[in-house]
Structures are given as structure tokens and as C-alpha cells.
Simulated assay, not measured.
Amino acid sequence: MIPLAGVIGDPIAHSRSPLLHGHWLRRHGIDGHYIPLHVRASDLGGTLALLPRLGFRGVNVTLPHKEAVFALADEATDRARAVGAANTLTFRDGRIHADNTDGAGFIANLRQGAPDWAGDRPALVLGAGGAARGVVAALLDEGVPTVTLANRTAARAEALAGQFDDRVRTIDWNDTGPALADHALLVNTTSLGMTGQPPLDVDLSALPGDAVVTDIVYTPLSTPLLTAAQARGNPTVDGLGMLLHQAAPGFAAWFGVTPQVDDDLRRAVLG
């Protein structure tokens, strides 16, 4: 059977995953297909049961299904269990294997975009959703000594911090600007600054000059946060690389080739 894979979400038309997997399929001469699938929550269980019978080797998972597919999986990696969500499913031996590569993709993108970044200094993370949970877990695994969380809804930040040890603390959203003085990495995991969303208004004046600023948003590629940081001379890392790096493990599992994340791939995904 022709190997198939895809991405499921609701909505899904905006996804760039077909572009990047299609690029890898062509590069490696693989006679396979990667298909976007619009799946509603009510159809999720039935879809996951049907896909392997249609020849699918696995799927990526995007909003709003990451937690739901984790609960439906037969097996899960440690990193998926750590965040209680999955973005990569592999169908093998009649079972659903769940993984979460978001954190690994975030770290790989950070190291590629800011090679001088060192994980031995504090980080400040904006947001307290599922993306923030994966980023915090990955930063702690990298040895970051403390992670500070700031979220517009303080209770959500406190709930997320409670899932980790005392290396994770919270501050009030309005205290973000002054708190930047004590951090070497600023990460935006919120939708603020994304095309069609309100701007992210953070005063960067206290941020150390060598602190790295990264945004997991990639539409636009240079968000207002990154533009402001670049104007100050801070090193910045855009969010597109996280999308690219998180995709590689799934492609390797489904199509048997470990792909490269390079400039050709970025150009293909940017269209």
C-alpha cells in the first residue's frame, strides 16, 4: 500500500504541515502522501480507528485535539505523559502510539536560531496553555534553573506551575516588564501578536542585551515582539523552526527516513 500520513485538527485549512511533509516526500523520492484532515471532536475516536485500515501510518495532531488523542492512545512516550497531550500518533501493530515532539522541536529551533543560548540561566514564559506546558517541560529538561510564568489569567499560570516543582514560579502579568531584568530567555506561547489577534504589549526596556527572545507564533514570521527585540539588538528566534523540527520524528517513523530541517524546507513552507 502507498504509505499515507496526515494532520488532523478543527480547523485544518491553515496548516502548513502538508507543505513541509510534501517537501520531504519529494526530496527523498518517496511514493507517499500527507493529507490534511478536518476532524471534529465528535468524530475523533472513529477517525483514529479507521485511518490505519485506509493505509495511514500515523498523523500529526493540532488544536483542539492534542489532549483528547493522548487519552485515546494505547501507549505514550514519557514526554507525552509529562504534558498530558500528543501531537504525533503512529499506528503500529493495531495500536496507537502517542508522542509529543513540541518541546523537542522548540529546543531544536532555539539552538539552531540562537547557537549561543545557554540553558543555565532563568527563562520567562508568557502564557499558560498547552504550548506553554510543553515549553516549560522542555526548558526544565535542558537544565534551565528557574522558569517564570506570566499569564493574563493568573489562576491558569498558578495551575500550570503546580504541575511542576519549585523551579517554576508565577508573577502577575503586569509585572512582566520589570521581571525581564532577571531572565536570559523570553518565550511567547500566547496567540498575542499573531495575525488577526491583539498585539502583545510588553515593555522590553529591562531585558538584558544578550537575552534571547523567541515567539512560537509564525504568522507573521516576524511578530511585533520579535521586531521590538531586534530593534534593541537582542538575538531573536522565530516560531517557524519549531513547526519544522517537531515534524521530523513523525516523518521518520512513518516514512523510514530522517529528514533535515534546512533553508530549502523553510522556503518551501513559506511558499
Rank of each mutant, 00 (worst) to 15 (best):
G94D: 07
P208K: 11
W173C: 13
L240C: 07
H33P: 00
F251C: 06
A68V: 07
A252W: 06
W254M: 04
N109D: 15
L226C: 09
H14E: 01
T101F: 05
D175V: 10
L192Q: 05
L139V: 02
A157Y: 01
V261W: 02
A253K: 10
L186V: 09
G130Q: 10
T90N: 01
H245V: 06
H21D: 06
V83A: 13
E75R: 14
L20S: 01
D203G: 12
L110N: 14
S42L: 10
D264H: 07
L37I: 09
T77V: 02
V136D: 02
T227V: 15
L265K: 01
F255M: 13
V187H: 03
T176Y: 00
V83C: 14
G46N: 11
H97R: 14
D165V: 05
T101L: 10
G94T: 09
P199D: 15
V213N: 10
S222E: 15
V144F: 11
V168F: 06
V168D: 04
R152D: 05
D10R: 08
A108E: 14
R27P: 04
L140M: 09
V212H: 03
W117K: 04
G45Y: 12
A181G: 13
S42D: 15
D93M: 04
S15G: 01
S191W: 05
A49E: 12
G196Y: 00
R156S: 09
T258H: 02
G177I: 14
G55K: 05
W24D: 01
V187L: 09
I216Q: 01
G103P: 03
N87L: 13
F164I: 10
I96Q: 05
P52E: 07
A76T: 07
A247F: 08
A49K: 12
S17P: 10
F106R: 00
W173P: 09
P259I: 08
D10N: 14
P3R: 11
A184P: 02
A86S: 15
P3W: 02
A104G: 11
W254I: 03
T223D: 03
L19A: 10
R133I: 06
